[in-house]
């Protein structure tokens, strides 16, 4: 919080724009992952509180995702069936996840999730 006010305005603006360019590239090129970059941009680089960083990142990602989604669809990358059923799953999972967040030890879940990501990444990159 204090960091936000002590940081020079020009420096802060430059960090926000450079961060925005990185977040936008990742989200458009990979179709996701922008949020995972936007949160550390807000809390680590700009010194924002963690909760506010998570919430604000969602708002920032929304227009990027919509614009990128439109581009993908216009370019012919769209499958209604998969999108519909996966979308239903995401809503159900999202509600469960939000409820579980209060009960589960998010540290353990975070580690499992990170290991899953690395494993999936190795599979995608090398096999």
């Amino acid at each position: 919080m204090e960091k936000l006010f002590t940081m020079k305005k020009g420096v802060k603006n430059a960090i926000m724009i450079a961060g925005g360019l990185t977040v936008g590239f990742a989200n458009g090129f990979f179709g996701g992952g922008g949020g995972m970059l936007c949160v550390p941009l807000l809390d680590k680089a700009l010194g924002e509180k963690t909760k506010i960083s998570h919430a604000t990142a969602m708002l920032i990602i929304l227009p990027i995702s919509i614009a990128s989604a439109v581009t993908y669809v216009v370019n012919g990358y769209f499958d209604l069936r998969i999108t519909l059923f996966t979308g239903i799953g995401v809503i159900v999972g999202g509600i469960i996840g939000a409820l579980l967040l209060k009960k589960l030890d998010s540290g353990v879940v975070g580690i499992i999730f990170a290991l899953l990501m690395v494993a999936a990444g190795i599979k995608q990159a090398f096999f």
Binding site: G87, G89, V90, G93, I96, S106
Partner: peptide, 15 residues
């Protein structure tokens, strides 16, 4: 979708 949403709902990169 549920698996992705679950992680997303917990504030981690579900996508």
């Amino acid at each position: 979708g549920i698996a992705g949403g679950l992680i997303g709902g917990m504030g981690m990169g579900g996508g």
